[in-house]
Simulated scan of single mutants.
Amino acid sequence: MLRPSGGATANRLFKGAAYGCGMLILAALAVVAAFLLIRAWPAIAGPREATDAVIESFTGGRFTTFLQYVGPLLFGSVLVAALALAMAFFVAIGIAIFISQYAPRRLASGLNVVVDLLAAIPSVVYGLWGGLVLVPAISPFWDWVCRHFGWIPIFAGPASNPPRTVASVAVVLAVMILPIITSMTRDVFMQTPRLHEEAALALGATKWEMIKLAVLPFGRSGIISASMLGLGRALGETMAVLMILSPGFNYSFNLLKASQNQTIAANIAAQYAEANNLGVSVLIATGLVLFVITFLVNYLARRLTGRKVTS
């Protein structure tokens, strides 16, 4: 078998470049982690009295320790992100299945462009839309939910008006992460081997049964990865939350009341301008907590994805 001249050298160069790019990602992650740790160190290892005084000023005297301060913020971040993912997940999968399996080619091409454009819209635009359009418009709907489902604790009333609540923020974040999940799952579904689909149809499966037996199992790891990417964006979202949510420091599941929860990212943006040096360190320490949680979520998702692929 003849080999192109210089093929071995090109192979080594490509392998080295690919290896270097992989290491660059790890290096960037390490630099971010080191930056957060260094900037947060005065709050972590500094005098407790000074740090507690800063936290007390941030919370109006409600909390005096870092754990008391970061706990409700972490709870709010996870709650808002989880609700957004729950709202967006099944809609995104349905859109991806429609585009990849049911839509005519021209319609699918147009929908692909729309989905990709929506995924590229900056979060501040979603925040403006949510604060100026969605919040006033959705208030009657939350009132209706409160009247008919108020016996469920998470929908207990009275619903706040204007509804600058966790529920409204979750809707905006769901719209924000919807095109990201849709785009990734659509690409995965379109990579399903044609022979798998034809084999299922040849055995007498209907179109939906073929999707359930061939497309969804093939795209399972991609679905998990897309969901975790959307969850990561929702966890770290700042501007949309800051522009809509009325903040609070409670461990509350009441979705229709204002001033119940706050997220770490939005709290950093709200407090940063007026914080002194130690206050900035405290805020960065909360960012370090969010960094660790996000890393753990993506690590677990990666382990789960690998397990599904090998099983």
Rank of each mutant, 00 (worst) to 15 (best):
N250F: 11
A214T: 09
A200E: 11
R220K: 14
G236M: 00
L278C: 05
I293V: 15
F35V: 13
G7F: 15
F291W: 13
N161T: 13
V91K: 01
I99N: 01
V215D: 02
F58N: 03
L256M: 13
R220H: 05
G94L: 12
I25G: 03
L36F: 12
A43Y: 12
L283V: 07
L73T: 03
G22P: 09
A273S: 14
A34H: 03
A137P: 00
M210I: 06
A10R: 15
I93E: 10
M87L: 15
A45R: 09
A270P: 02
Q262Y: 07
F189G: 08
V70Q: 07
P158G: 09
I154P: 02
V80N: 04
L74C: 11
F291K: 04
T182S: 12
T286C: 13
Q260F: 00
Y126F: 14
P72I: 06
W41Y: 15
L288S: 11
I44M: 12
L24S: 14
G60Q: 03
H196L: 15
A103R: 09
A266N: 01
A226N: 06
I121P: 06
A266D: 08
S221N: 08
A265H: 08
K207W: 02
A167K: 08
R147S: 12
L117C: 05
T9R: 15
N276A: 09
P4Q: 11
G130Y: 02
V166K: 05
L255D: 00
V113H: 07
F66G: 06
A81S: 10
L213Q: 14
A258W: 00
G306L: 10
I268R: 01
C146K: 03
I44N: 00
I244G: 02
L134V: 09
F58E: 05
I211H: 03
P217V: 09
A199L: 12
G71P: 00
